[in-house]
Amino acid sequence: MRDVAIIASAQAINAATTTATPVEMLIPVVNQVLENAGIARADIGFWCHGSCDYMTGQPFSFVSAVDALGAWPPIIESHVEADGAFALYEAWIKIQTGEVDTALVFGNGRSSSGDINRILTLQLDPYVVGPLWPDDRSIAALQARACLESGVVTERAMAEVAMRNHHNAISNPYALRRGDHTIDELMAAARVADPLRELDCPAHADGVTAVIIAAGDRARSLAKRPAWIRGIDHRIESQNLGNRSMTTLPSAAAAAHKAGVGSDKIDVAELHAPYTHQELLLTSALGLGESTSINPSGGALCANPMMSAGLARFAEAAARIMNGSADRTLGHASSGPWMQQNLVCVLEGE
């Protein structure tokens, strides 16, 4: 395997709504990540993009993103209908083949274009579940209920997750939602999809994240302290809501095992867990303990720009290595109802 590292990232400030077109949002972030890396467009070997047509409300919506790349002369480029973190995975594979040494990956989405909770319903079995139109919060609430009833999580633990993330987001300039709350205040709040309260649910946002990865000496020449990808893997589980564990995340555990999470201490983990109870399930599935700082950015609870929220976690986890404040971090992205699909990446400094 070739050594590959994250060497730069850039994010847009997450917004509840935006008036710019998706391409207009993209261009400043693409320019910023190139500047942060100190690399010219022409030196990018591969470009890979993650986005979703149903969020945009337009088929082939990703096509216009090519307009942001200065794809002239033509470029080697691909697109995944998924979070930008999966685009990073494809780029990592591409670099492993030896065909290219550098890649710029990005994810973007405009959650405010439509009712994102309702749009996500379209991920469900189209024959028997989708026609009932359960929205994303309701599906998550079913899981939260099962977790509470089985004693896997408590309402207090969920409130603690909300409190910590919202506190952490105070120091994250990209976050959409932030602030200090007390446990009592959080537990007294109204329920929006029983048993979930507003601050148990993700802050859906319009956002963009871009990351540049590079191989070996190329990475060393471009960054003082590259964040080396020591393990990366993704796994999926059944979506069948009636035939699936509601209280465990076997796909996350499997991906973490393959990525080598347990072989040493993780200093910082950035988790793409949209709901508070899901962060608790995920922390347990990944085998993370007290010594790991979870979501210093505030995580998806404080800004969930769909299709870039996972890649933003990778960017945040890499930033801790690159600024020297951590030696071993974890980036995570998820997709699907009840975190059906999980991508785990272990990053280390040299």
Partner: peptide, 25 residues
């Protein structure tokens, strides 16, 4: 009319526990 249908197709593909990757170009 199915968003990211690979998610729902996991059972049909007996893919649970495996990596499933979706491309759209």
């Amino acid at each position: 009319g199915v968003m990211m249908p690979e998610l729902w197709l996991v059972d049909a593909l007996a893919a649970a526990g495996k990596p499933v990757f979706r491309v759209h170009t």
